[in-house]
Amino acid sequence: MALSREQIAQRISQELQDGYYVNLGIGIPTLVANYIPENMEVMLQSENGLLGMGQFPTEETIDADLINAGKQTVTMVKGASIFDSAESFAMIRGGHVDLTVLGAFEVDTKGNIASYMIPGKLIKGMGGAMDLVAGADNIIVTMTHASKHGDSKLLTNCTLPLTGKGCIKKVLTNLAFIEIKDGKFHLLERAPGVSVEEIIKVTEGELVFEGDVPEMQF
């Protein structure tokens, strides 16, 4: 079975480490916040200028002056800090964020990522995504493995305008956990009940694996 959005978030949460500063993109990455292990301290960075993002507020505590990068109203955890946008991207560009999780339309075997524009259709802008992929070392891209029409999103060459060049090393899709290395996709894990053959079928770029590919554990 392909992973649900929640399962994708849950699998990513296994990559968290105690003491990590983490930036979560809009969409599935945001859900990772729901699966931070209880015995672990993790600080969420929101690039509009907040380190230590908390949960959504209640109707009583809602504050128009406190939002996240998705413009949603949020709260702060104890020990949070607030800063301006230049400081926020100094953290990101300077490589101080330990893990970045973001969505994409396509990735390719060279580690390129396309995530912000579909020419003629969707031109909303890159927001902070280009800075995040250029600044972070540890990035996990999450997306569905193929489009609704079955077209692979893991390609030899991205077809859409790039968000970043040669910067992606890990991809978690609804079918597989993949590492990008030496110009190839390396299949590390597969979703429970999904065969290697099924993954190969929807992976356009060269996919390699060693021995029995383990199933993801939850």
């Binding site: 908390g54 949960q55 959504f56 507020p57 209640t58 109707e59 009583e60 505590t61 809602i62 939002i67 998705g70 413009k71 949603q72 109203t73 949020v74 709260t75 702060m76 955890v77």
Partner: peptide, 13 residues
């Protein structure tokens, strides 16, 4: 984006 949750569930701020 007005996002909220029920009072009982919050621990923020």
């Amino acid at each position: 984006q007005r996002t909220t949750q029920p009072l009982s569930a919050t621990t923020g701020e």
